[in-house]
Amino acid sequence: MDVVDGMDKTVNEVEVRGLTKVFGRRTVLDKVSFDIERGGFLTLLGPNGAGKTTLVRILATLIAPTSGEVRISGLPISDDSAAVRSKIGLISHSPLLYSDLTAEENLKFYGKLYSVEGLAGRIDELLDQVELDHRRFDLVRTFSKGMLQRLAIARALLHRPSILFLDEPHTGLDPHAVDILEGLLAYIRRDHTFVMITHNLEKALALSSSAMILVGGEIIFKKSREELDIEELKEIYRQNVKGEGA
């Protein structure tokens, strides 16, 4: 799982150095530093309010850090956000889709924003992958939660990003939709770098190449899969994430 063919694993896709984010008086992230190798899959765990979502939103250029440096594919995110943005895709608990547009119109819209080449073909291909081809001309407001999430995945992959951020993608999905999501993730696992926030330990560990626990804006645990003792991780997780479905 950790050897990714066709990719130079020695290159870091994400480099985070001394990342700090302060909201008012509150320090949400405190000098966070870590790397993710190209093709890696980092699982981000932690209690609510630990700064996981803030971290992902900073990596996705949605929020500017207070201090520190982030490089994605070697590009500092502060310098040329547009170039960085075309390399990233985000799947969060809200699908980021317009409910009064059809599935195809949504993808066309985002495709234009990203200036995707060969857009029509790309949309066909993706709708086929997420098994939504038969609903292509239906309004998104008629979609079930699972279908929305599948379309959201298609949207996030549309511009062929090299890194994907997943912010609790399992939230609110029925078991069948979770299966489809898992299948898709396994399918695209080979040629993307991932950062996933989740509370679902088992599902996450099946795919990940490393795991990280964030508490109070600080990294209290980070290990790659080889050195990872799953029982140890579960124990630390349980201690820090009490009463949150852990």
Partner: peptide, 18 residues
């Protein structure tokens, strides 16, 4: 309200547009 409620403002901000 549309953009905000459906979270689409994030979708716009994520894309490489000025």
């Amino acid at each position: 309200v549309h953009e905000k409620d459906e979270g689409c403002l994030d979708g716009l901000l994520l894309s490489p547009v000025d």
